[in-house]
Amino acid sequence: MTLWLLIPFLLLVAVVQITLLPRIPVLGYRPDLALIVVVAQGLVGTPGSAAQWGFIVGLFLDLGSGLPFGIQALVLTAIGLLMDLGQAIFFRGNVIAPPLAMISATLVYDILILAILTLFSWSIDWGDYLLLVILPAAILNTLVLPLVYFPLQWLRRGTRPQLEI
């Protein structure tokens, strides 16, 4: 996917996450769409591209986030990097890879954000966050993953060979 398509696409993902998803929560949780897109790209995309997707969509999310600017970009780049590494070592062709990757990525994503906030002197109740927020969010993200994974896979197969996804 060219940058000219990629940037509007990831901007759309961020806008949907900031405006649409908060209005239709599932059992009180909203899917982390940007994270799901980065994970799906790590699973089906060109090796090494997920980190770039994470950085771009993270910057857009930072604009709509009340957290210090740069946190989302940093954490999603890190997730993308981990996905790229995981793809090279483990993920490709593995049946349990997508759900495992999504659960792991959600845990790493939320824990990294909370760890950074702790550095900024936020008081974090880790137990409550893990049980009441992070684990249910990981399950929800895993359930939503196919809605992003298969279209991206289809898009990758349908794209001309000289263009990268």
């Binding site: 900031i18 949780y29 982390d32 009340g66 957290l67 927020v133 969010a137």
Partner: peptide, 10 residues
């Protein structure tokens, strides 16, 4: 808009 994560509420 609202905060994009499940962690904080802005």
């Amino acid at each position: 808009g609202q905060d994009p994560t499940n962690l904080t509420r802005y």
